Structure formats: structure tokens, C-alpha cells
Computed example of a mutant assay.
Amino acid sequence: MSNHPAREPDFDRYDTPPDPPVHYAEQALLGALLLEPHRREAIGLLRPEHFSRPLHGAVFAAVAALTPPDPAVHAREPVWLTSVLSHAGPTNPALTASFLHTLIACAGMSEHAAEYAGMIRADHARRAVRVHAELLIQATRDPTLPEPASVVLARADTLNALIDDLGSRFSPHPGSLPRTPAPATLSRDTDEEASSEEELLLSTATAHPDSLPTMRWLQAEDFTVPVHGQLFRCLTSLAYRGAPVDQVTVLWEAQHQGILTEALTARDVLDVLASPAGSAQHWGEQVLRRSLLHSALTAGLRTQAYAEDRTNTPHQLVTGSRRALAELTAVRVRWHRATSPTPAAPPTSHAPATTRAEPRKPSIASATARALR
């Protein structure tokens, strides 16, 4: 037995291409364009950034920027390869004549160049959706954002715009639903701050039920603690029926709705409703903001799962992503209703133009609400 260590084989990094099929589609297209430059006119809209590998994108950028040689000259001399190498080589040291010859060796059927280009566009669409879904997820989990809702909605708008653009570029086909199982529904994070603000909302709305008819934008499903959502449903049921609202009537409604159990006693409910403070509108917005961020996180994770599954076609990816974002849109509509200022009523026609109403002194409740905001 030899005492010399076994010599590692010499592998060039291009000898073993990545596994994704798009890599082979890129090789087939570039090889075809190097062999038959005139095929470039038949591949449709394609840009260097559509390629999964920067080096492939650099070769295509050169192919797209240069004027193809005369077919007779191209058949006799390697002027086309020399031009591509001279154009892209200075800024891409890894691009060599050997690499171009490797692409030519991997060339597919030149008449299928347009199909190869379509594969590249499809895979780029998948990667683009995945990136924007990840940005949306990141925004929902960033505690340093001063206005997380506005950032999250801006990124959701960008993702929606991308999905709409892709929907116009890729034609539909039968079997439009993604084959990817949707991720499991995330449980809501029930931290102490969220629970405390929900209790403040319930107790304040009980003490000042006049605010309930203006808070139709809030739903029981927005609460992080399910029992709090059930108690809020009791409050709104009483208010919409025009019934009196106080701690005792809410407790009675909770009994009829089957909320009281051994784990949640009547005393527990009264304790939750016993400490009003600030403005119910303010606490309701806090609850809805958390619901908005949770819906955005769920939509981002579902879209990310669809984009990471290579079995999905672009049309399936678009369909699944739109469905995932639809739930966020529903919460967003309610968020807009909650946070948009109420338009001022127009002045009455019989009031003199010079008449001005004296400003009212702020109430204690209003002052407390501003301090808590």
C-alpha cells in the first residue's frame, strides 16, 4: 500500500453544473446563440438579470449588445466568439474562451431557443416572487421599524405589483392552483403587552359603549387572545341591538354565548372589564395593527412556500400568491377605515359665512387618549 495520500481529482467549477434545470436551459440558450447569433431576434424579451448565474447573464449581455457578424464570415472564422469574449471578459475574469466553448458544447437545438428563453423567464419570476415575499416577512418581524404597518403595506404593494405583472406575462392553463401544501396556520404571539392592550380595549369600550358603533372595522378574529375576541363580540352584540352595556350586561351576554367555563369564571370576566383607561379607538387600532402584521406574515410565508416549490408553473405561482395576499387585503381595508381621518361635515347653507364655532375644551377622556398615544 502506498504511503502517499490519494491525489484529489482536478475539478473545474464548471464541470459540475448546479442541479436546477434552469441551469441547463441557460446553457442551451447561450450555446445556441453563440452558434447561431440570428436566433436572438426570436427569443422575446430577455434581460441579463433573468439568468440565475451572473456569468451567464454577462455572456447574454454581450450577445444582446453586439451586432451579429455576417453569416458567411461567422461560418469561416470565430469572430463572434472573439467579440463576445472581448466585450464581457474585462469585467468578468472568470469568462474565458474555454467557458464559451463549454456553452457551445451544451447548446440545445437552436430552433428551440425561444422555448429555452421562456424557461429562463419563468425561473426568474419564481426567484423574484421569493425575494419580495422574504422582504415582506422581514418587515413583519422587524421590531425597529417606527411605523411597521406602513412599511409592511408598501412591501405588500410591491409584491402585488409584481404578481400582477407576471399574471400579464404568463398565460393561464388548466390546473392553475399550486400543488404546494400551504404552511400550517401560525399561532398568534400572545405577549403581555398585547394581552394588556386588549383588556384595556374591552374595559374602556364597556365603560364608554358609544364608541362601539364607530369601530365596525374591528373583528373578534383580530385579537391575539381568543377569549378577548369572544368578549368583544359580546360587546358589539349588545351595542348593535341597542341594549344597555356595562360589566353586568356583558357578563350576562358572555354566559349566553357559552364563554364562561371553569377556566374563565364570572369573576375573571369582571376583572378584565374593571380598568378602563384612554380611548377605545386607540386600543382598537393597536389590536388591528397586530392583526394586520400577522396577516402579512401569513401571506408572505405562503407566497414564499409557493415560490420555493419548483414544481409550480408561473401561472400556479401567480394564482396561489394572489389568494394568499387576498386575506391581507381584507384586513388592510379595515385598517384604512380605522386610521383614515373622518372627513369634516360641510357647513350648513343657513349659517353666516363669518360665523365661527368656539372651540370646545378637550375632555378628560380625550386628553388621556392623547397622552396614551
Rank of each mutant, 00 (worst) to 15 (best):
E327G: 02
R290S: 02
P90E: 05
S321I: 04
P178S: 04
H282D: 12
A338D: 10
S363V: 05
E26K: 04
A280W: 08
H294E: 12
L81N: 05
S203N: 11
T329N: 10
R267E: 14
P341T: 12
C106T: 05
F51N: 00
T236K: 06
T204C: 08
G89E: 00
H350Y: 08
P48K: 05
D165M: 07
I163Q: 00
W217H: 13
S176M: 11
R356E: 13
L153S: 14
L201T: 01
A371C: 05
E193Q: 15
G108F: 04
T348N: 08
T303E: 02
A72M: 13
A184S: 12
A65C: 14
A344P: 09
Q27K: 08
F11H: 07
G108L: 03
D189Q: 14
S52R: 11
T368Q: 09
R40P: 01
D70Y: 11
P226I: 03
V272Q: 02
G320S: 00
D12Q: 15
L33N: 01
F99Y: 15
W283F: 15
D222Y: 00
E285N: 14
A205C: 12
L100C: 09
L186A: 15
D10F: 15
L200E: 03
N3I: 07
D210F: 07
A207G: 03
L231P: 01
A114D: 08
P148E: 03
E253C: 13
A280K: 01
S98A: 13
V129I: 07
P93G: 05
L325Y: 01
A182N: 05
P143K: 09
S363N: 10
N92K: 06
G258T: 07
A220T: 02
Y24Q: 11
A72E: 15
T185S: 10
L30V: 01
H282S: 11
L264T: 05
P48F: 04
T354K: 10
A65F: 09
R241G: 08
G118T: 11
P276A: 08
G258W: 12
P69I: 06
L136A: 01
D246V: 03
L166P: 03
R169M: 12
A369Y: 03
T249F: 02
P341Q: 12
A330T: 12
G167E: 10
Q257L: 12
V248D: 13
D10E: 14
T319I: 09
A139D: 04
P18V: 10
A107P: 04
P359D: 14
M109N: 10
A344T: 13
H56S: 05
W252N: 06
T96E: 09
G108E: 08
E197S: 09
G89V: 06
H74E: 08
A274I: 00
L66G: 14
P213A: 13
T140M: 00
M215Y: 06
Y240P: 00
I163C: 00
P183Y: 11
A207P: 01
R39I: 06
D246H: 05
A139Y: 02
T303F: 00
A139P: 02
Q281R: 14
L325E: 00
S203Y: 08
E198L: 09
Q219I: 00
D123F: 08
D246N: 11
A184V: 06
T82H: 07
V227D: 05
T82Y: 06
H208E: 14
V331W: 00
D222E: 03
R360L: 15
A62M: 01
